Computed example of a mutant assay.
Amino acid sequence: MAQHLRGQRKKLRFTSIVVILSVLVVLMFIVSMNTGFIRLAPLDVIKTLFGGGTSKQHLILFDFRLPRIVIAILVGAGLATAGAILQGVSKNGLADPGILGINAGAGLAVILFISYYPSKETAPVFMIPVLALLGAGLTAFIIYILAYKKNEGISPIRLILVGIAVAAGVYALTLVLTIRLSPENFQFVATWLAGNIWGTNWKFVLALLPWIMVLIPFSMYKSKVLNVMNLGDHVATGLGASLKKEQFWLILTAVGLAGSCVAVGGGIGFLGLIGPHLARRLVGPQHQYMLPVSALLGSLLLVTADAIARTILQPTEIPVGIVVAVIGAPYFLFLLVKTK
């Protein structure tokens, strides 16, 4: 009876937190529509949304701001979920697509793509997430092979160290490629690597949406598998989990989310680290609760950071990755101090 009551209280707490976070995301969505170099009054935004407003207001809202806000929400959810999956698979609270070098691999693939298609308008935009996924997948495969030992499996410390080393090598190769670019493309790539939501039209939303709509629900479907993995490899195997097979599919899911998000969001770091940790503090370590809350927190953090990035130094915009890093770097150092 007591256990049943605890379960009911936990579900009620989870539902309350999901509702609160959803409301906050909607509020930030509304605030973001009113922020930018050209101010739109709340009444003008409402009129434009319902078919009124001037042609200029319609252009600003529907062609520039709304796609960017939607992309920020999708990218935030995708990166936070990818981080939660990697932390669950590796049993390492410091695992994150950026720290492990997966973002770097996706970024290298996208920069190669941009190098061959200097004009972003003529480039086949729907290929960008696919190429980013291939770059992220190849990097993840290299990290997995180097971190895996036959008798021990994946060591959390080895995974972090290998990821950092591979990321350093990929970033070095990326730097060599950027030196060969024209000044205009070099500036674009430098901003993109800092974490810049450069896909600001509906084509990019459509390119990213299928990855998010398929892979996040799949990760939530696998939440019980992640719970079993956290009990330890021997216990998970004893409970009937096909450990290597499940690890493969979960890592592939995280790579798919990270690769597609980096393709349109640039090299945004720390989001996959912060979101899961905050979610774990709010609803506990069980992944059926933690994954949805991580996704909502990631969306809330990135859409807020994007609004700050667009307004803090007007009329200049700063890359949203810098705002996230200002929040994430101290938190990462805090986790390093706490981790034994």
Rank of each mutant, 00 (worst) to 15 (best):
H4W: 04
L5Y: 06
T15P: 00
I20W: 10
V31S: 07
S32P: 15
T35V: 14
G36N: 02
G36L: 05
R39Y: 10
A41P: 01
D44N: 11
S55C: 00
K56G: 00
L61I: 05
F62A: 04
P67K: 09
G76P: 14
A80S: 15
T81M: 13
A84I: 12
Q87D: 04
G88T: 14
V89W: 07
D96L: 05
I102V: 15
I102D: 05
N103V: 10
L112S: 06
F113A: 08
I114G: 01
Y116Q: 00
F126V: 10
M127H: 00
V130S: 11
L133E: 01
L133N: 07
T139G: 06
I142A: 13
A147I: 09
N151Y: 04
G153T: 02
L161A: 06
I179S: 03
P183C: 04
V189P: 00
L193E: 03
A194K: 12
N196I: 02
I197Q: 07
W198V: 09
A207K: 07
P210D: 11
M213D: 07
V214D: 04
F218N: 07
S219Q: 15
M220P: 09
Y221M: 15
K222H: 12
V225K: 10
L226Y: 12
L231V: 04
L231D: 02
H234Q: 03
A236L: 03
L239Q: 03
A241D: 00
S242C: 03
S242E: 10
Q247K: 15
L250W: 02
A258G: 10
S260D: 08
C261S: 11
G269E: 05
L271E: 00
L282C: 14
Q288S: 15
V293H: 01
A295L: 08
A295C: 11
S299M: 15
T304V: 15
A309R: 08
I312D: 01
L313C: 00
P315D: 08
P315N: 07
P315S: 04
T316Q: 06
E317K: 10
V320Y: 08
I327L: 12
A329W: 03
A329E: 03
F334P: 05
L335H: 06
T339C: 05
